[in-house]
């Protein structure tokens, strides 16, 4: 998978590059709109991570040009302005998704995987963990065809941990994922812990839930072969 990171903040593009490379992506970076335009024209990328606020170029124009030249790349636009107008404009121009700064790298990866699933039209869209089957399409969980009644947030948490299996996810990362869009009071709450507790309780009726591991002082990890 080839990714082009278009970001004028070098430190930021560097961190994204480190992360995505570790996840097995081939990364290319462009610090200006001009070089991004050239790279998109010459190479073929699976993903273009595009910062809308480039100093030399309007990110939307870049997106428009790429779309007009028939590039197949999936575009995820990134903005620090965070206005809904930008979001609508970007999606109207054919962007596949939208992230506001600051965003979690895990969130970025989850969005990329969701785009891939959409693009390849995966019908059989399930993840299996220790006998528990997650149906991503219908957002349900079952164990040996017994449906398990989870709340939306509980499903989201389980799904997110499954996407990032075998790595520790901090409470902050989980909070940002399930409450990220909401500007509410708490900056630190135990909601996540309660969610996990309930999740374990509901799943343990059917099978062993040891695969959900608590990493003391840090967060949670879903262990999966």
């Amino acid at each position: 998978m080839n990714v082009l990171i278009v970001e004028d903040e070098r430190q930021l593009s560097h961190e994204i590059e480190i992360f995505l490379t570790k996840q097995g992506y081939q990364c290319d970076v462009a610090f200006t709109g001009k070089s991004a335009s050239e790279k998109i024209y010459v190479n073929s990328y699976d993903f273009v991570l595009l910062d809308i606020g480039l100093p030399d170029y309007n990110g939307f124009n870049l997106l428009r040009e790429a779309k007009q030249s028939g590039k197949e790349s999936a575009f995820i636009i990134v903005t620090a302005r965070g206005s809904t107008d930008d979001k609508i404009t970007g999606l109207d121009l054919g962007a596949d998704d939208y992230l506001s700064k600051p965003f979690s790298l895990l969130e970025l990866q989850a969005r990329m995987q969701a785009i891939l699933r959409r693009k390849h039209g995966l019908k059989n869209n399930t993840i299996e963990i220790n006998g528990f089957v997650l149906d991503i399409q219908n957002r349900t969980v079952s164990f040996k065809n017994n449906p398990i009644n989870l709340t939306k947030k509980e499903f989201d948490i389980l799904h997110y941990m499954a996407l990032h299996k075998n790595r520790v996810i901090t409470r902050v990362q989980l909070t940002e994922h399930i409450w990220g869009d909401v500007l509410e009071e708490d900056y630190e709450s135990n909601y996540i812990d309660v969610h996990i507790k309930n999740l374990r309780k509901k799943l343990s009726v059917y099978g062993n839930t040891d695969f959900i591991e608590t990493v003391r002082g840090i967060g949670y990890r879903l262990n999966m072969a």
């Binding site: 903040e9 430190q11 930021l12 961190e15 994204i16 992360f19 700064k101 600051p102 965003f103 790298l105």
Partner: peptide, 8 residues
């Protein structure tokens, strides 16, 4: 954003 991603 930089700090957050670096921490991750």
């Amino acid at each position: 954003s930089i700090l957050q991603n670096r921490i991750e």
